[in-house]
Simulated assay, not measured.
Amino acid sequence: MKMALDTAQLVSQIQAWGQELAFSQIGVADVDLSSAEPGLQAWLSAGCHGDMAYMATHGMKRARPAELVPGTLSVITARMDYLPRDTPEGWQALELARLERPGEAVVSMYARGRDYHKVLRNRLQTLAERIQAAVGPLGHRVFTDSAPVLEVELAQRSGQGWRGKHTLVLHREGGSMFFLGEIYVDLALPPTDAVSEHCGACSACIDVCPTGAITAPQRLDARRCISYLTIEHAGAIPQALRPLMGNRIYGCDDCQLVCPWNKFARRSPLADFDAREGLGGSTLVELFAWSEAEFLRRTEGSPIRRIGHERWLRNIAVALGNALSAGHDERMLSALQARADHPSELVREHVAWAMAQGAAAH
Rank of each mutant, 00 (worst) to 15 (best):
V28Q: 04
A361E: 07
F295Y: 15
A36E: 13
L127I: 07
M109L: 15
A326P: 00
C225R: 11
A360W: 01
Y228N: 14
P269S: 07
V318Q: 08
R331H: 12
S108I: 04
I14K: 07
L21F: 09
G280Y: 13
V195W: 00
D186E: 01
S227W: 12
T72H: 05
I237H: 05
M1L: 02
E153W: 01
V106N: 10
C252H: 12
Q160M: 14
M1H: 05
E153K: 00
M52Y: 12
G136M: 05
K2D: 05
G358Y: 09
R172H: 10
R224F: 13
H309V: 06
T72D: 06
A356W: 05
M60P: 07
T167Q: 01
K263C: 12
A240C: 05
D51C: 00
L68N: 10
A147W: 06
L320M: 15
G246M: 04
C255M: 11
P190C: 09
P260K: 10
S282V: 06
E232R: 06
E153A: 10
L120Y: 05
N247T: 11
S34H: 10
G113V: 02
S35T: 14
D32G: 04
V107Q: 02
K263Q: 14
R64P: 00
I14N: 10
L33H: 09
G181D: 08
N315Y: 10
N322T: 12
Y110D: 01
T77W: 00
L5Q: 10
T144P: 06
K2L: 08
F179N: 10
I26N: 02
G327P: 09
G327A: 11
R267N: 08
V69W: 09
I226P: 07
H58L: 13
R224G: 13
Q41D: 14
S74K: 03
H362K: 08
D86P: 00
G18F: 01
F288A: 15
L324K: 05
A222F: 13
F288H: 13
E310C: 14
F179P: 04
L346F: 06
P88W: 05
G71C: 02
A319Q: 12
V347D: 07
V31K: 00
S203W: 00
E182S: 03
L94Q: 15
A147F: 04
Q9F: 05
R339S: 14
V75S: 02
I183C: 11
Q256F: 08
T211R: 03
T144Y: 04
Q19K: 15
L287E: 06
C259M: 06
A354S: 09
V11S: 02
H342C: 02
G47K: 01
S24K: 05
M80D: 03
C255T: 12
V258H: 08
H171D: 15
G358E: 11
L346D: 08
T230L: 01
P210W: 12
A338E: 08
D221H: 12
S146K: 10
G251K: 07
H309Y: 14
A340R: 15
C199S: 12
P148T: 11
M80F: 05
E37D: 06
V107N: 03
W290K: 09
Y184D: 03
